[in-house]
Amino acid sequence: MKYLEKTIQLLTTITKYIALSTMTFMMLFIAFAVLSRLFFSPIVGDIELVQLGMVVMIMCGLAYTQQVDGHITIEILANKMSKRAQTILDILGALLTFCVTLAFAYIYLEVAITHQNDMRLTTNLLEIPFYPFDFIIVIGLFMWGLEALLKFLRSCLLLFQSNSKES
């Protein structure tokens, strides 16, 4: 468990810093593109680069958001329940998140492989292929799933411990 936890957290930290760098890059790049258009010449493909930056930033941010428990929930009912019931709800939420993100990662893996081998989609002007970004989507979703798995295991452990205390 400790080992698994450490590995997942390390991977999430890596995706997080990729996202942070991308965000910084986007900010600087948009300013650079505007200045260049005003004073020199427009940059060909500036929109595409921002679009690709968005894909990287969003996908690499999903796991981090899960790590800091940032995916919004409604707690009106849960707050009125016992600790134990809340833990069970946490297990449900984490399990569903894990299943959904894994299914989506699987779907996107097929997309990525198709785009790599059969139908090489690219951006319009710079002709940057989509498939590496498809793989980033796969990784982003998969990491989100792993973070959810971590939460699932932690909550299960919590439930198990409280069970053994009671008995």
């Binding site: 409604i74 009912l77 849960a78 709800l89 449900l92 939420g93």
Partner: peptide
């Protein structure tokens, strides 16, 4: 139902 069971909103919508 899912939303009120504290399942993340994104997941509640997509399930």
């Amino acid at each position: 139902i899912l939303m009120f069971l504290k399942v993340p909103i994104a997941i509640s919508m997509v399930v």
